[in-house]
Structures are given as C-alpha cells and as structure tokens.
Amino acid sequence: MAGFDKVVTSYAEAMAGLEDDMTVIAGGFGLCGIPEGLIAQIKTMQTKGLTIVSNNCGVDSFGLGILLENKQVKKMVSSYVGENALFEQQLLNGELEVELTPQGTLAEKMRAGGAGIPAFYTATGYGTPVGEGKESREFNGRPYILEESITGDFAIVKAYKADRYGNCIYRHTAQNFNPMAATAGKITVLEVEEIVEPGELEPSQIHTPGIYIDRVIQGCFEKRIERKVLAK
C-alpha cells in the first residue's frame, strides 16, 4: 500500500489481524448490503469466540448464519434474530449469548462509538427489560436511559463503489447500518462491487469518507434476496 491507496487484493490480507474473542461490527440489514466475501473469509479463518454486532444474523447457511453454523460466535448484539433456526437452538443450548438491542439504539451505539461519544440518553427502552440495570435520568419531565456506545476490533462493511482511498457510496437500501459500522471499527474493511480511481466519485456525493476505511477489497456478491415479493 502506498499513501492513501487502501486496496488489498486478497481476502486473507483484508481480514489479517482478526483473532479469537474479538468484536466484529457488521453492516447490513437482513441479507441486504452484507459483506459476503469478508464473512466467508472469517469462516475460512476459523476464528472462535467472536462477538458480532449486527442488526440481524443472516439466515441458516447464508450471511452471518454461516459463522453460527461453524460455532465461531460467542455473542450476538442484534435487534432482530427471527429468521434463524440455528440461532434459536444455540441460544437455548447456552452455546450463544445474545444482547437484544432496539434497532435505533443499535445504530446510535455504532454512530456514537465511531464519533468518540461513550454513551447517550434515549427514551427507547425505558421501563422495559432493555432499561433494566441502566442509569436513568429525566430531561424536561421525560425519563431516559443511558446507553453505552459500541466500537469493534474490526468493522466489515459493504458498499457499492469506492475509490482507492476508501471514499465510498452505497446503493439504495443496501446502505442501512453500513455507514455507522464503517466509523466504529479499529480496523474497517470495505468490500465493494466496484473500485474506481480517486476523483471519479463526486466529492459531495460520498456517503462515507475514506478516513474511516483501512482496507478496500473488490468483492463478488451473490446478493441473495430474503423475501422476494412481486407486485400483484
């Protein structure tokens, strides 16, 4: 690598440094906008005891679900895990821990983590099991709970196009959690559909500036659709 050029040419390089018991933040919503090749590389590396922070956990046999199958995950931090039978089974067996987190709180935890804000107050979850054991405080007569932010040893992110410097844009609703995840990793790895030269992307249209990105790899995506519903 030279200067700001962050492109790597192998998945092994892309995920180099990942070790057992690390925390990995992953972008994506369901199977939409997930870094497929980076997830597959984690499976190849056989890294164990991982804490995965991601809105969902894929489905059986695809997306993050393949890491569950391979028993590499110790803990999931997610808002919704309903599509995954194996997840439920491992949870009931005690093989897996889960920290169910409201979706907006999860997004904000990543955003705050990446922005150097250690915690924030939110009304979400007050008076529910999510608020149990957390500090609460009233502002303008309304109670809020204190939620701590999240950072990861790695963040794995999927974008549509990036330049060699890591400036990137997302496509449609494949954006979702990816921009927040990108800011919250000590090492952030970006897997993209297309790499372009610096200067090709319009600066004012960049979603995630390259400063957050450490490595960029050209991916190859299946883009599986979880629920294909057509117009009647």
Binding site: S78, Y80, G82, P102, T105, T124
Partner: peptide
Amino acid sequence: IKGMGGAMD
C-alpha cells in the same frame, strides 16, 4: 425470542 427490531424506538 426474535427481538424487538425497531418497535421500541
């Protein structure tokens, strides 16, 4: 045990 998704927010 599916999770709350965005409902609490």
